[in-house]
C-alpha cells in the first residue's frame, strides 16, 4: 500500500499529537504539534513508516525543551493566570481526576512521559523507548517509579 501522504498523516495524527503535547505539560500544545509536522516535512526519513514515531519523539523533545525554558522564565516572573476552561465539556476533567493529574504534573518529566505514552497512547515498552530515546529497561524504571510516586501522592492527599 502507498505510504500516507503528508496531508494524510496530518489529518490522522495532528489532533492526537496536540493532545500528547498537552498531556506532557506543554503550555502551547498546538505550537508543538505544528512544529513537529514542520520538522517532519523538511526531513527525509530512513523509513517512511517511521513518520508517526518520529512525530511523537519530536513532540516529546520539544515539550521537554519548552518546559525547561519555562522553568527558567518563571524564575524571573510570576506564573501567568490559569487557562480558563471554555465549555461544559470540561466537566470531563472530573474532581476524581484532578488530584491524579496534579500529581502527574509534579512528576519528573521522563516519568511523566513514560506514563503518558504507556497509559494514554498504549505504546509498548519498546515503542516508548524509541520515542523517548532511552532503553526499554529505562522505560520500565521510569514507569514503575512514576506509578509508585503517584500512588504515594494520592495516599498523602487522602490523609
Amino acid at each position: 500500500m502507498a505510504q500516507p501522504s503528508f496531508a494524510e498523516l496530518f489529518a490522522a495524527h495532528y489532533h492526537p499529537l496536540v493532545r500528547l503535547a498537552g498531556l506532557l505539560g506543554a503550555d502551547d500544545p498546538e505550537d508543538i504539534a505544528q512544529e513537529a509536522f514542520s520538522r517532519l516535512h523538511t526531513r527525509r526519513l530512513r523509513d517512511d513508516g517511521a513518520a508517526v514515531s518520529y512525530l511523537r519523539t519530536i513532540v516529546c523533545n520539544l515539550t521537554r525543551n519548552r518546559l525547561r525554558h519555562l522553568r527558567l522564565v518563571r524564575l524571573r516572573r510570576p506564573d501567568p493566570p490559569e487557562h480558563e476552561r471554555s465549555s461544559e465539556q470540561a466537566v470531563i476533567v472530573a474532581e476524581e481526576h484532578r488530584e491524579l493529574l496534579a500529581a502527574l504534573d509534579r512528576l519528573p518529566r521522563r516519568q511523566r512521559e513514560a506514563l503518558v505514552l504507556r497509559y494514554w497512547l498504549d505504546l509498548s515498552e519498546r515503542e516508548i523507548a524509541d520515542v523517548m530515546g532511552v532503553s526499554a529497561g529505562s522505560v520500565k524504571t521510569h514507569a514503575s517509579r512514576a506509578l509508585a510516586a503517584l500512588g504515594k501522592a494520592l495516599k498523602e492527599e487522602d490523609q
Binding site: Y14, H15, V18, R19, A21, G22, L23, P29, E30, R85, Q89, A90, I92, V93, A94, E96, H97, L100, L101, L104, L115, V116, Y119, W120, L147, L150
Partner: peptide, 14 residues
C-alpha cells in the same frame, strides 16, 4: 490514570 489521561486529553482542541 488511564481514565484521567483520556479525560484530560479531551480538553485539548485542534
Amino acid at each position: 490514570l488511564r481514565a484521567a489521561l483520556d479525560a484530560q486529553a479531551q480538553t485539548y482542541e485542534a
